[in-house]
């Protein structure tokens, strides 16, 4: 068979041309395929999504993805099984006036850990962050979901920077005043 005859590099070259859904299937084929599919995820094809919207309202952060002409919202209230639930595009996803968000809040580390592996499946055309306080965790998250990707536009609406932001991040993102 192919597996016994070929080195891992050859198989990885094949699997790098699959997408995450295929790798999900492949990971249940056999133990070796699971190991190789995990490695391939850093190089595989990404889902081309139109938009990522990260917004905060009433102390809850909402992650929504416009993919394939459908909006998906990330359900962060289910901590054990994390899934995206398809929703209808409606007024609930429209950005509200900044005055409705008098206080920005950082994205919790728990939420970042939940959504990061999922969002790395996508290549977003547009990213919008609304009413988010940008702390060091945010910039780590931001780097994670934008690295090796081509994002056409990134919007920050009513966002501000955390006063405890590290000097490293201030310099990296050219933040001159807080």
């Amino acid at each position: 068979d192919l597996e016994s005859e070929n080195p891992d590099d050859c198989l990885l070259s094949i699997f790098a041309r699959l997408d995450h859904n295929d790798l999900d299937q492949l990971s249940t084929v056999s133990r070796k395929m699971m190991r190789l599919s995990d490695i391939s995820r850093t190089k595989c094809k990404l889902f081309e999504a139109s938009k990522l919207l990260v917004s905060q309202k009433n102390h809850e952060t909402n992650f929504s993805v416009d993919y394939g002409s459908r909006w998906f919202t990330l359900n962060t209230t289910v901590s054990t099984i994390f899934k995206m639930t398809s929703i209808e595009l409606g007024s609930s996803l429209r950005l509200e006036s900044p005055s409705i968000y008098p206080d920005t809040l950082p994205i919790s580390v728990e939420n970042i850990n939940l959504v990061s592996p999922l969002l790395t499946r996508f290549n977003f055309d547009i990213m919008t962050f609304s009413s988010i306080r940008m702390d060091d965790n945010f910039f780590e998250f931001f780097k994670h979901i934008t690295s090796t990707r081509t994002v056409r536009m990134i919007e920050f609406i009513h966002c501000n920077f955390d006063e405890n932001l590290s000097r490293n991040d201030r310099e990296r993102y050219a933040i001159k005043s807080l």
Binding site: D1, L2, E3, Q25, T28, V29, R31, M33
Partner: peptide, 13 residues
């Protein structure tokens, strides 16, 4: 998964 196993000629372990 079943089709992949057939294509790759691998058994589930």
């Amino acid at each position: 998964v079943e089709e992949m196993r057939e294509i790759l000629q691998l058994e589930c372990d």
